[in-house]
Write a protein that binds this DNA or RNA. Structure first.
Lengths: 133, 133
DNA sequence: CTTGACGTTTACGTAAACGTCAACTAACAT
DNA sequence: ATGTTAGTTGACGTTTACGTAAACGTCAAG
């Protein structure tokens, strides 16, 4: 009944549009740890979600090392208060970075959208160049 | 009167928190082209703005090559219609990418903020684990 | 039974984006 | 004149994130 869905490396590769090589590389880096059927890797739903997470992390500029750290952060259960505070601080730094990056993205999107407008109506462009009427 | 402000490489490096080496590298790649006073590079306001643009581009994931292309796109004045459409298409692709990236950023920010909350109030965490009361 | 599709490991290669010398010049300060 | 402080140009080194090729196992289809 509880036959959880599993995936081959090629399935994941196709779904997420990365190479098998990349997925194995993430494993080398300790980011993911599928079970094995003999020699072949078998990924379950959790692995699937984990890979999705990794790729999102990458897309927003985290290095694989940082992603590894973040994934580890989720599993601090030692309860040490100091460690907790250090982690909190680093998280907040990351969040600040990402918010700044979001602003930069917004800026860039505006830039390109503005440029597109010029591309679409070049006549306007020339007029604007002479007088902003 | 029209004494435009200029900058040395070190000034720019400090202001933007990059190394002089990096700035020279951008020049090698054709992204920026300061004038010279003898051997030394002199950057004007336009160069300053250009560098800012480059760094924002980088921060949102463009490669230096892509940034070069984008900067070039701004100076297509040949008026060829086909070229214009190609450019438009590529711009729109980029914009779509960036919007997706913005979503990913929002997701990640939420993730980390959620995690921070757990870090701040660990008691809550345990309670939640048992029953979401 | 061999061909093909898919998987594996090991090992070396590579592109991007700089870092890091080394060796030099030119301008100043002492 | 001499040391310190910027700046310069190569040239080579480094890290990250995979690509790529070699050499092989496994299983289903023809």
């Amino acid at each position: 009944m509880t036959e959880e869905q599993t995936y081959s490396i090629a399935q994941l590769a196709q779904e997420f549009d990365v190479t098998s090589r990349a997925i194995r590389f993430y494993e080398d880096q300790g980011l993911i740890n599928p079970t094995r059927d003999g020699q072949s890797r078998i990924y379950n739903k959790a692995d699937h979600a984990r890979l999705a997470w990794i790729l999102k992390g990458k897309s927003v500029g985290f290095s694989l090392g940082e992603i590894g750290e973040l994934l580890n952060l989720y599993s601090i259960d030692d309860g040490r208060q100091h460690q907790r505070l250090v982690t909190l601080e680093r998280c907040n730094e990351r969040i600040a970075d990402m918010k700044e990056q979001k602003d930069n993205l917004a800026f860039m999107i505006k830039e390109l959208e503005g440029f597109c407008k010029i591309l679409v109506s070049p006549e306007m462009d020339e007029k604007i160049k002479k007088a902003a009427s």
